[in-house]
């Protein structure tokens, strides 16, 4: 499984390095989302700073959707999905490989978005350990749910519009927990200092469910769609 995951992740990342879709299209799109949030809350700087964690994670989700769609579009383009199925690759390995590739792409996008949040929203980064741990787990959660639902919608003609519809409710707990954990880390929350880690625990649980669910069901999903 891990060997197959490594092969798939390396292949997807190599394709991304060549096509630069994330860098040339998704990053500007995510920054535009942040900018528009900034315009919407511009008259109230304190509100903008308070809302920054939530706006950041919404921007990550918005950036994650095209990344997931792109990950499955490259398989559908020349009938490669049949080749993938016929290759005998472990479906769990394919799932984890795609999750890893999207997670790494989102890390790059998030690094740029963090810069945007600091510049546009005047946020001050603090609470390093909680901030970093939350970012890693939330990103894996977004990618895990995205890949599972991406496989579900890949065989459908309306996948471009269906995927956001399916994914948004599933990602709501991740956005909520990640936002609250970040608020705690940045000192924006009124709850006790341990509150952030409790949200982090919830985040770990949801991400664990998404990843375990994907590992267990991905084979069925790609065979049935």
């Amino acid at each position: 499984m891990w060997h197959d995951a490594l092969l798939v992740a390396a292949k997807d990342l190599r394709i991304e390095r060549r096509s630069r879709v994330s860098l040339n299209q998704v990053v500007p799109y995510a920054l535009m989302v942040l900018l528009l949030f900034g315009f919407a809350f511009d008259q109230d700087r304190s509100l903008l700073a308070q809302a920054a964690p939530g706006l950041f994670w919404l921007a990550v989700v918005f950036a994650g959707l095209p990344a997931v769609q792109r990950s499955f579009a490259i398989e559908a383009a020349d009938g490669a999905s049949d080749n993938m199925r016929m290759s005998g690759l472990d479906p769990a390995g394919i799932f984890l490989g795609k999750v890893a590739a999207i997670t790494l792409q989102l890390f790059v996008i998030e690094a740029i978005l963090v810069g945007g949040v600091v510049v546009l929203f005047h946020s001050r980064l603090a609470g390093g350990a909680l901030l970093a741990a939350t970012t890693v787990i939330s990103t894996a959660g977004v990618a895990g749910a995205g890949v599972a639902y991406g496989a579900l919608s890949v065989g459908l003609r309306v996948r471009e519009t269906l995927l956001p519809l399916l994914l948004a409710p599933v990602l709501a707990p991740v956005v909520l927990a990640a936002t609250q954990a970040w608020r705690s880390a940045l000192g924006l929350s009124t709850t006790s200092p341990g509150g952030g880690w409790r949200w982090f625990g919830l985040l770990v649980a949801f991400t664990g469910v998404y990843l375990a669910g994907g590992v267990l069901t991905f084979g069925t999903l790609i065979e049935e769609t």
Partner: peptide
């Protein structure tokens, strides 16, 4: 499926990879 090779109407290649990278991926799998 590890013992079968299927070539359909479409080639199942990744446009952004080179020919060698495509074949190498299939071989490694």
């Amino acid at each position: 499926r590890r013992r079968i090779g299927l070539l359909g109407h479409r080639n199942g290649l990744y446009d952004d990879l080179s020919a060698l990278e495509n074949v190498r991926f299939a071989a490694r799998v």
